[in-house]
Design a protein around this nucleic acid. Sequence first.
DNA 1: ACGATTGCTACTAAAAGAGTAGCACTACGT
DNA 2: ACGTAGTGCTACTCTTTTAGTAGCAATCGT
Lengths: 110, 110
Amino acid sequence: MALLDLLGRRWVQRIIWELRGEALSFRGLRAACDEVSPSVLNARLTDLRTAGLVESTEDGYQLTADGRSLLTIMLPLHEWAERWARHVSAETGTAGRKTGTRARPSRSTR
Amino acid sequence: MALLDLLGRRWVQRIIWELRGEALSFRGLRAACDEVSPSVLNARLTDLRTAGLVESTEDGYQLTADGRSLLTIMLPLHEWAERWARHVSAETGTAGRKTGTRARPSRSTR
DNA sequence: ACGATTGCTACTAAAAGAGTAGCACTACGT
DNA sequence: ACGTAGTGCTACTCTTTTAGTAGCAATCGT
């Protein structure tokens, strides 16, 4: 279950998603991903490049053929996720649930 | 991107996958997931129940209608993952790549 | 009453992630 | 040639998440 393991890491799906269009530079990709730590971004990019899903060209990072293939598989999932988000929020009264709150507890400035 | 955030956590996809068939008890599910820590399993189950994807019945844990719906969306992804795993290993010479090696560095027994 | 099993919590340790600074390199204008 | 600005990325510290193990309260069968 190697790929699913990879997809289970934080940011991996997001990175693939952000690369759906044109190639992005490291910093551009980072900006697209809410300014992830460069260390984490680089780790994930290394993973994805090793897995052959992303490649680095002179234009920046972009999906390989495999990566694009995977993206098309993931599209229905994104659509489902959006529909689900809508009907869940409708069901519980618009306010986000506790689910995600625990995830990123709004760090202080340090 | 709440659902994708949820799916980006470790074990979540696996749990959904293991519940594809019949309902499983807590310990049964744990066994199916390579003996995950009960603390993590419980945390993920709480997440999934809060999200309305899994429910706890007298027969054990099982997918809700939403959960099963999501599962059907995820099926193509699993198939793609298997195909991909085969062609990657064929390409690199059967031995697993470095990708996963860094991931779980084979803990000592403790 | 007794042991076995179940769901789950409590606790510690290790790994992954976040946050920030900044280096080495290239491309540029002057 | 020199400073400036942009790039990809590493180094470091600190926080959060996950792993690992023990074990408790409740239930079950005998």
